[in-house]
């Protein structure tokens, strides 16, 4: 594929774009995993949200 005399600028643009958007996608899904893991950890320790069924920790 011949992209002409300025091919370097075209590839550099697409590389920069893929890097930025790729990092954004990666960070968003990594953050999601981290929050889900933190919530599971809280669940394992028996911490319950008021709206969730089940015995309350302080016997209420």
């Amino acid at each position: 594929m011949d992209l002409g005399p300025h091919a370097a600028f075209i590839w550099a643009s697409y590389a920069a774009f893929v890097a930025i958007v790729g990092a954004l996608i990666g960070w968003t899904f990594f953050d999601g995993r981290r929050q889900a893991a933190a919530l599971q950890d809280a669940d394992r320790r028996g911490l319950k949200r008021r709206s969730e069924p089940g015995p309350k920790q302080d016997g209420a």
Binding site: T28, Q35, L39
Partner: peptide, 26 residues
């Protein structure tokens, strides 16, 4: 898609924060 996922993450983050604060208070 990223905005929806970001909002989901933020809601989970706030739930975790609420649970941890409740644990400390208890």
């Amino acid at each position: 898609a990223l905005h929806l996922k970001g909002m989901q993450n933020e809601i989970l983050r706030r739930r975790v924060k609420t649970l941890r604060l409740a644990e400390v208070e208890r």
